[in-house]
């Protein structure tokens, strides 16, 4: 059951990425495209975080009284969690820039249709 949690996370990540690519490639609305791109980023982040999952593991905070060997054996792997935090920040800033550009383009073209604005 615990193993299933990791598998479910990986499948969800895969689904998010596929849905995101579909939205980014096939939808004509720029905002919907950006939402699709956010899905791809979230999928990658979920995938990354699932890599650090440890069945039956504990949070990687070393508290007084814990035996060091026991902690080393039972704590979840902290690296992916630290990485994903950075990745979320990057994703947020990228999305902010994209939305800012879309605002400017909307004022210029009066439309959010990618086929009109980007000439696809």
């Amino acid at each position: 059951m615990i193993m299933d949690t990791q598998l479910a996370s990986l499948f969800t990540a895969g689904a998010l990425i596929i849905i995101g690519i579909f939205a980014a490639v096939f939808l004509d609305n720029l905002i919907k495209k950006v939402i699709g791109l956010a899905f791809i980023g979230d999928g990658a982040n979920l995938f990354l975080i699932a890599m650090g999952y440890k069945p039956g593991g504990i949070v990687y905070i070393y508290l007084p009284g814990m035996a060091r060997d026991w902690f080393a054996q039972n704590a979840a792997y902290p690296l992916p969690f630290a990485l994903v935090l950075t990745s979320i920040v990057i994703g947020a800033s990228t999305m902010a820039v994209m939305l800012g550009i879309i605002m400017v383009l909307y004022k210029k073209h009066g439309s959010l249709r990618a086929s009109k604005v980007l000439g696809e």
Binding site: I17, A24, I40, A44, L48, M98, L118
Partner: peptide, 19 residues
């Protein structure tokens, strides 16, 4: 914007490779 849209597909895939 076109460059960023393509980048927002390619970069998470790079991240996935790293993951």
């Amino acid at each position: 914007l076109k460059y960023m849209i393509l980048g927002s597909i390619a970069s998470p895939l790079l991240l996935l490779g790293i993951a």
